[in-house]
Design a protein around this nucleic acid. Structure first.
Lengths: 151, 151
DNA sequence: TATAAAAAAGAGTAAAAGGTCTTTTATTAT
DNA sequence: ATAATAAAAGACCTTTTACTCTTTTTTATA
């Protein structure tokens, strides 16, 4: 994929929160990790990080857990990725060359720039809210697969 | 970047060979590694692997080294990557979901498929020969940067 | 005000990726 | 035949990434 495991976990956990949690119904780490099939304590640190950066909300103690405020849902995938691992990817040559630019382009420079541009656009257009809405309207899906809990 | 270090080293070394080596003028590992600034023995294994797969030619002993035959230059970046690390990338969901397909697309599925398709096309169109020609015609460049040897 | 619930924090472990060093094998030229 | 050259092979080391286990802190509520 394009980004690291922690970033993948963060993105999927955030989308999950946006769908199933609220200030009135916080979700505990244990439940999120088991529902998504992620390693609990590892996800714990990632959630901590997200909370510290104020990208999600957290509350300690009984009936505590994680949730998102409406404002948190405005964030785009791009900003999320930027916050978590930076956007160096978009400044990197497709063949790994250090000296590659418009004046001295590598053999795939032009086309690769366009592809990165399209990906950049995609990531900046998709907000947590827009993805949540698509899932709620069954335009998009995020199956839990074999991790889904019985009803 | 999109692929692993070994694949990056392989691609750049192959392009370098296509430009500077031939059956009459083989290049030794030492020179290739120092010219490109890659770790010598690590590159050695990668070259071994390429030779074993018959993607480049190698000869032991005095005046031995690596080179490419004209036929070797027909290979595309896509086939190279396929040979070195496989193409799972192109079958992977943009959000890491296991269950993501046309029927149950993830929230970025459609756009991501298009981007992957464009990247796939780029990689299959660029052959070693086409890239070598572009560099020889100064349409493209592959600077050695500070690794370049003095003339 | 004690207790239990839950996140926060920290230290340690495991696996994968990337890289080094040494020995062996094949080839060429003397 | 021998010596030199260069790739092939193998064992090992280092760093980074991914993950686990334990302890501490905060907070709601009985």
């Amino acid at each position: 994929m394009f980004f690291s495991k922690p970033t993948e976990y963060a993105i999927r956990a955030i989308i999950y929160l946006s769908l199933h949690a609220s200030e009135e119904k916080k979700l505990g780490l244990k439940q999120i990790a088991s529902d998504l099939g992620f390693p609990e304590h590892y996800l714990g640190k990632i959630m901590q990080d997200l909370a510290k950066r104020n990208l999600i909300q957290s509350a300690k103690g009984p009936h505590g857990g994680f949730y998102m405020e409406e404002k948190d849902m405005e964030i785009s995938l791009l900003s999320l990725i930027d916050a978590l691992e930076g956007l160096q990817f978009f400044n990197t040559c497709g063949l790994g060359l250090h000296e590659c630019n418009e004046e001295k382009p590598c053999p795939i420079h032009k086309e690769y720039q366009i592809i990165k541009g399209n990906y950049y656009r995609l990531l900046s257009q998709k907000t947590i809210r827009s993805m949540r809405d698509d899932i709620e309207n069954e335009i998009a899906f995020m199956d839990l697969g074999h991790h889904a809990k019985k009803e």
